[in-house]
């Protein structure tokens, strides 16, 4: 295993760690910070892969990730949180130790699931696919277990980080057009998130998602 590959693996481990960090962090600023870190690791690993494989378009992806995930999105969220005064503790629905245990199970599951694929791949990054999948699933888990709209957004973005990581690690990146398109979509999505936060804020006076449980079939207790 080459040194770069080792570095990539370390970065993958970091990404996994940050995923868990997101899962356990109670404070919203802390969440934003961890999210930015995750973006940074992602971007670095993408750049490394680009370097190793000599695929120039991956640099662009790396740069995109850096600007979007490390700078722009955390900043937008930071501004939102400040403007809307929502830096109180993040209350999870499921308690944190339990969430962690579930997270660990998910990681093992992802590893098990990607095992046959690992056998097939020749890429240096093939081992990281398990990490990518677990990042996706952990992001998903975060969305499920958090009460506030902002934390859900962060969970969603973390999930997308996992996808990005999968794209680079499993395949050395998707074709550039796709990457660009995906990035554009995420940007628009982020804007829409912003708009939504305001809409929710103005209509409900709160960003707690329990306000938004009116539309349902189930009645009564």
């Amino acid at each position: 295993m080459t040194f770069t590959a080792q570095i990539i693996n370390v970065l993958a481990a970091c990404i996994l760690l940050t995923s868990f960090g997101l899962l356990v962090q109670r404070r919203i600023y802390g969440l934003l910070r961890i999210f930015a870190w995750q973006g940074l690791f992602l971007s670095a690993s993408t750049a490394l892969v680009a370097y190793t494989a000599g695929m120039n378009h991956l640099y662009i992806s790396a740069a995109l990730t850096l600007t979007l995930k490390v700078v722009v999105l955390p900043y937008i969220l930071y501004v939102l949180v400040n403007r809307l005064n929502i830096y109180r503790d993040v209350e999870p629905l499921v308690n944190i130790p339990a969430t962690m245990l579930i997270g660990i199970v998910l990681v093992i599951f992802s590893y098990h699931l990607t095992a046959p694929i690992r056998e097939l791949s020749t890429l240096v990054t093939r081992t990281t696919l398990a990490v990518a999948l677990s990042t996706v699933l952990l992001g998903f888990l975060m969305m499920i277990t958090r009460k506030k709209a902002v934390t859900q957004i962060i969970g969603f973005l973390a999930l997308e980080n996992g996808l990005f990581f999968a794209a680079t690690s499993a395949t050395y990146g998707m074709p550039l057009v796709i990457e660009l398109g995906v990035a554009l979509d995420i940007l628009i999505a982020a804007f829409i998130f912003g708009i939504f936060i305001f809409q929710i804020r103005t209509t409900f006076d709160s960003l707690d998602l329990k306000e938004m449980e009116k539309l349902k079939e189930h009645e009564g207790a």
């Binding site: 629905l93 969305m143 499920i144 277990t145 958090r146 009460k147 859900q152 998602l209 329990k210 938004m212 449980e213 009116k214 539309l215 349902k216 079939e217 189930h218 009645e219």
Partner: peptide, 10 residues
């Protein structure tokens, strides 16, 4: 079946 549609996004 209505219980499926619980209203809670989580």
């Amino acid at each position: 079946t209505a219980r499926l549609q619980h209203g809670r996004i989580h």
